[in-house]
């Protein structure tokens, strides 16, 4: 199997990699680019732990071939904080104890940010539906919902001020 050369943009930075034609974007991120924040929980698009943004859409990187990243814009959990300043979602997850083992957390944060970018003031119901593809085994979800809503409120407040 001949490797493919792929040029892409990850978290705003140009990135190039070689990958096998059947290699997933998740494997590329984790094994070739050292971006291990996205996790493989199932490899079949059921758990959401591998969530990344691909050209502005939330996707499971386990269901994307690395080769498809050619020319694409990819955003991962590693790009969420700005320098040493956590994104409000990240801070809210810590403040509201919305994580326990933390293995689902990167995917949930990426997914939650995708929602808040579209809808800064989602209802709890909309939020729960949006995150239905992000499985968490430890927390029971309530704290996750509370944390996202707290971050959303903070982000709206910041927007109002700005």
């Amino acid at each position: 199997m001949k490797s493919l050369q792929v040029s892409t943009t990850i978290n705003g930075d140009a990135a190039e990699f070689l990958c096998a034609p059947d290699e997933t974007l998740l494997d590329v991120l984790r094994n070739r680019l050292g971006l291990t924040g996205a996790k493989e929980g199932c490899g079949t698009g059921d758990c959401g732990a591998c969530s990344v943004m691909l050209n502005g859409r939330l996707v499971c990187s386990c269901l994307v071939l690395g080769a498809e990243a050619e020319g694409a814009e990819i955003a991962t959990i590693e790009g969420l904080a700005e320098g040493d300043v956590l994104h409000p979602l990240q801070q809210a997850f810590i403040d509201h104890a919305a994580l326990q083992c933390g293995v689902c957390t990167p995917g949930i944060l990426v997914a939650a940010k995708a929602l808040l970018d579209r809808d800064p003031d989602p209802s709890d119901e909309a939020l729960r539906y949006w995150l239905a593809g992000n499985l968490c085994r430890c927390t029971g979800y309530d704290k996750i919902i509370a944390a996202v809503q707290a971050a959303a409120a903070e982000m709206r407040g910041a927007r109002d001020v700005a």
Binding site: T36, K39, E78, Q90, T105
Partner: peptide
């Protein structure tokens, strides 16, 4: 362990 886990920095088994 909060910051490591919300930034993707925490190292799990496969990492």
């Amino acid at each position: 362990d909060g910051v490591d886990k919300v930034t993707g920095r925490a190292m799990y088994g496969a990492d």
